[in-house]
Every structure is written in C-alpha cells, then in structure tokens.
Design a protein around this nucleic acid. Structure first.
Lengths: 200, 200, 200, 200
DNA sequence: TATGAATGAGCTTTCATTCAT
DNA sequence: AATGAATGAAAGCTCATTCAT
C-alpha cells in the first residue's frame, strides 16, 4: 500500500487528454508537420511529457487520426440501420466529409500511410462503408459496380477541393459531393474503365 | 565561321536537364519538402550546383511546376479548336489528370500557393478551361451552372484518389473521372449548394 | 522542506556559463564572425545546445556585449561620486579601455550596430560618461569643448592601437591613453575643426 | 614569332587594372569580407578571371593594401625634405589619415596581418615615419620619447573614431587628430607607462 | 587567356528524440 | 510521472577556389 500513490494518475490522464486536444488543433492548422514543441505548448506541458505519453510523434499522429476513423465507423454503424438506404449513404458521405475537412485530409492520409494502427481503423471504416453502399445498391440508388471504397475515395476527393481553393469556403465540398453523388446514379452511367480498389 | 564561338557548355546544359528531371521525380515522390540535397544527389551533382542553376529552392519548384501548367495550357488551346466540344472537354480533363498524377498534385498546389510566377501559369490554365467548358455547356453536354474552375477542381479531386490508394494503380483516376463527368450531365442534376469558386 | 524543489539544473547553469565564457573568447579572438559551431566546441557542448540558451546568434552577441556595457556603466556611476573629478575621469577611461581591450573593440561596435538592446546599454554608458566629463570640465581639467562621446571615442581609439600591433602587449593602450588625455588639457589647446558627435 | 600574340596582353593589363579599382571600392564599402563575385561583377569580368590575376583572394587584398602603403611612403619621402618639420609631420599624419579613412582601416589592418608582402610595405612606411618624427623631435615640436610607430598608431586611432560613429562624418578624424597631436607636445607631458612598439 | 560551371566546406537554424534530475 | 536541457542530424544557402572548354 504505497502512501503517496493515486493522485499522480489523475494528472497523467488529464495531460493525455490535453495533449490529444492540442494535437488535433495543431495538426488541423499546420498539417502533419506541426511541431511537437507547439503541441506541447498548447497543451500546457513540456516536450518531454509528450514523449512519455506517445513514444514517437508518429504515435501521437496515430492517436488523433485513429480516433477520427473510429468516430466515422460509429456513425456508419448507426446509419446502417436507417430505413432509407439512399439517405443513409448521403448522410454518411456528408459526415465523413465534415470530419475529413475539419481534421485535414492530407494529415489523415499521411497518418494512415505510415501507421498500421491507423490503417486498421481505416479498414474497419471501409467495411462499414461497404455495408451502406450494398444497401443503396440493392435499392437501385447507386450504380451496380460501385463499392464502399469508391464512395470513401470520392468523398475524400470532394473534400480535397476545399484545400485546393484559396478563399475560406470550408464547406465548398458540399458542391462537389453533390456532383459526385449525381455521378453515381445508375441511369445512363458510362462504363467504368478500372476496377474499384480493394483498400485505400 | 566564328572564331570564338560559344560552346554553350555541354555539361551545364546536361546538368540543368538532370536537375530538372531529378527535381520532378523527387517532388513527385516526396512532395515539395523534398530536400535540395536529395535532388542534387539524384542528379549526380553537389548541392552548390543546384543553387548555381536555381538561385533558391523556390525557383526550382517554380521551374518544375510552371512547366507543367504551361504544358496543360498548350493542350487546352489546341483542344479549344476541336470540332467536338464534349470530346474536347473529356480529353482536356484526361490530359490534365495525367500530368497532375505524374507530378504530384500536392506539390503543384504548394508550388502555386507560394510562388507568384507559378500562380500566373495556373491562372492562365484556368482561363483556358473556362473556354472549353463554355463550349461544352452551349452544346448541352454539361449542366449550366458549371465552370472551368469546377472541372479543374474535380479533375484534381479524381487524381487525388490515386494518391490516397496504396497499390500501384497510377491510372485509377480514369475510374473516378468517368464518374465525375457523369455527374456533370444536365439531365436530372441536383441543385448545387455553393457557388463555384472564382479561383483555385 | 519543499518536497518538489526546483533543482535548478546544475548542468544547465554550468553550460550557460561555459557558453558565455566561450563566446567571450571566440568573439574576442575572431570578432563577431566567430561561428556558433566554434563557440559550442569551446564550451564543450553541441551546436543545438547553444540555441537552447540563446535563440539566435544575435542573442548571444547581445548577452556578451550588453554585459560589458553594463559593467562599465556601473563603474561610471560609482566614479561619478568620487571627490576628485580629474582622477575619476582617468580611472573611468582606464577601466573602459581595459574592458574594451579584453573583449575586442570591433566586436562591441558590431554588436551595438545591429542590436537595439546593446545599443541602449551603450547609450546609457554615453550618458554616464557625459556626467564625468562635465565634472572634470568644471574643475578645469579638460578643455571646454570636449564631451563624453569624445572621451569614449578617444579611449576606443587608444585601445585600437593594441589590436593594430603584432606583439603581445595587451596594455599598450596605457601609453596612448596617456597621450590622448594629455591632449585634452585646456592649456595651449588647438581649436577643434569638427563638432563632437552626438552618438557613437 | 607567334602570329597572334600581343593583343591579348592589352586585355590582361586592362582587366588587372579594372580588378584593382573594383576591389578598392568593394573593400572600402564592404570591408575585407567583400565577396570575390561582387568584385568581379564590378570589374566587368567573371570570377574565374579574378583568380587568374590573383591566385587567392588574399593576394588581391595584398595588392590593394600594398598600394596604399606605397603611396603613403612616397608622400613621407617627399615631406622628409620639407623645410618645416612640424608642419611636415602634421601633413604626413593628415595624408595618412585620409588614405586610411578612405580605404577602411580594418581592411588595411586585416591585410597586413595575414600577408607578408603587405607587411613589408607597411614596414617601409614605418621607416619613413621615423625620419619625419626624428626631425620634428629635434625641433622640439614633439616630446622626446615618441617614435614613428607612435604617430602612425595614433593616426590610425584617430581615424578609427570615424568608423565607430554612426552618422556620415567622414572627416571626423580631423577633430581627434588635433587632440592627439596636442597630446604629443613636450610641455607638461606626463610620463609614458609603456615603451613604444617596434613594429605595428 | 577568359569563361562560367562545379565543387565542397562552411554558415545559422530547426526539430524529433533521449536522458539526468 | 514530469521536467526541461542535451543531442545530433537534418535543412537552405553562400562563397573561395578549381577546372573543363
């Protein structure tokens, strides 16, 4: 029974939370190149503490990015029980776009690329998306040869246009997501030249 | 027979070409953060030589990126006299995608953002795109509320999906460009929620 | 008995002191162009450590130079209450010369030129010198048209002769300071062709 | 008898002269750190040509500095036959100051320090100064224990004050040279604490 | 002999990571 | 568990000097 034991844990938990919150903001603002020092400063701790909680910067990236993917998976799961498959798919794409736009698409991509833990979260999301697309396809709302990966990639693509535009129009993706979803309609669809990717 | 002809320094010309080629590859692979040292190494010269040919790293970026935009503008100009406006637009989008995919989209964007010369090349391209879209619109091939900026952004977006996919499928963009262009058809088009951006 | 006392990082304090000492020597020997790498090597730390203690090279310059000027101002203030104004002025000039000689005149000048904080220290010294000269003038010890700036400049000048001489005669300035101060006597003084500078 | 021989020499001579002139200006303006590239540009040649005429930058420094010392030696020699020794000494000091001020004292010092050829020119000047001082001393115009080196060093010192002053007062040295020469009068001279240096 | 490109060591500064306290 | 200093490997860029033409 150590006499001076527990309170330290409370600090640690609070610090970890502060760090994640700070990292989210910094990564969103500065991208994956945000410096550990700035994140520490925003969290109100020193640099060394960052590395106690996250052994490398990459681990911190993974924690932030993984959380986003997990959040999206949860949304997908909820929507998979919605009565209107078409609306569910549209909502899923919008929610995804919103989060991607908020956190920075480039950041999330960089994160998944070099981190297996994040990659796994992302794969889970992919599975959820497949379910939603399958339901919409059965209802004749989207063309037959479209997959969950297609929808996710196209959503990323629509979000990407925001970053490529100078002025502050954070929801410009809505314009392009509309066009893209129009492009998925079965009527008069052109044949697609390449197979859908299995992963992304 | 000029007795004091300028030999034009064969090696200098070769080095400049090597540097541009190396920079293209490095920028494509590593993005705009590719280091001058790596570019020099790939070109088979020392760092100092890079700075003889391009006074700053930014000048090198501009040379690579500017060239790509110029190439695209030339293509657009040629296509603007094609008899089939719909086919011309599709070809333009494909050519654009091909070059964007090859060079690295993120790099080109970063280059235009912090380099006024590159930005100008890009603006010229935008003007050319507007002409092509205008012709296609008059033919009823694309919906009325779509602009050159829209088409360029959507093409970038389609290309972006390649970078977001792991396996080596360099022309995956063809799949998504098809979907996107399908989405531009006038028939049954959903209303677009945000105005088109003026610049990009 | 504070349970969480600040150890004050003994090694950090030692490193900071080593750095200042090393910088003093290097700046004295090589002038303001002494490299940060050499200073670090002499202090027995790595380059990065220098920048932890002094964010820029300029800050290090300012720390070394500012300290010297502050030391001189303190001496001037003490001497301004001495009962013998003539002796006080001579002592001030000697003390100034000693410090200037030790630190390297060119370095101190360069430091004041490009660093506002150092410039302020120097201006304060100028004010102190004016007080001492004013008192000596009232006692008829120096000619009427001489100012604090004159005395400081002439002291710098006397010190400068040491640097201009090859052999190791670090206090050669004493010889020339004597001549210069003799030149300030009121008796038989030649008219001075240019006004005294306001600053230096 | 080479058929295409001489004209080249004319070019070479002209280039050498241009280089010396350009170096004078650049060294005066930027000090000894003036870059070879800038000197070449001002002279209208390329960098490589500089090194054909002067094997190292140091040699170029030596050529410029040596010329100045030679010019001063010539003046001293002429003045050593003047009927008024006091006036001759004053004129010599003024001429010296003028040239030192024009060329940059720090530059000339740096030049003599690391270049034996310049050092020799300087030694010759020292001998000339000794003659002038000896004559003035015999006339009772300067104190007995003063040497040519003293006068040169004090002249340098007076000039040094110009560089140490911010505003553009290029002949401020006249003020301090007056004070310094007043300080050399035999009447009421304080004893000098250190022997005169043999070289400088 | 002149050219101007290539070289390579040097500079200040940044940053992820390690480690003594 | 937290601190904050030390580390060392980058980075972009400059410049005296060498060398092929």
């Amino acid at each position: 029974m150590p006499p001076v034991a527990r309170p330290a844990r409370v600090d640690a938990v609070r610090n970890r939370a502060s760090l994640l919150a700070a990292a989210e903001v910094e990564f969103a603002e500065r991208g994956i190149d945000a410096s550990v020092a700035d994140i520490a400063k925003r969290a109100g701790v020193v640099k060394g503490t960052v590395f106690r909680h996250f052994a490398t910067k990459d681990d911190l990236v993974a924690a932030v990015a993984g959380d986003r993917f997990a959040r999206l998976s949860a949304i997908a799961e909820r929507l998979s029980e919605s009565p209107d498959p078409g609306e569910a798919l549209r909502e899923f794409a919008s929610a995804t776009a919103e989060i991607l736009q908020q956190q920075g698409l480039a950041f999330l991509r960089a994160a998944s690329e070099c981190n297996p833990v994040v990659a796994e979260s992302r794969d889970q999301l992919l599975a959820s998306a497949d379910v939603l697309v399958e339901r919409a396809r059965r209802d004749g709302i989207v063309r037959a040869d479209v997959t969950g990966a297609d929808v996710l990639l196209l959503t990323c693509a629509a979000v990407h246009t925001v970053a490529a535009t100078p002025g502050p129009a954070p929801d410009l993706w809505r314009r392009y997501l509309t066009i893209v979803i129009d492009g998925l309609r079965p009527e008069g669809a052109s044949p697609l030249p390449r197979p859908a990717p299995e992963r992304f």
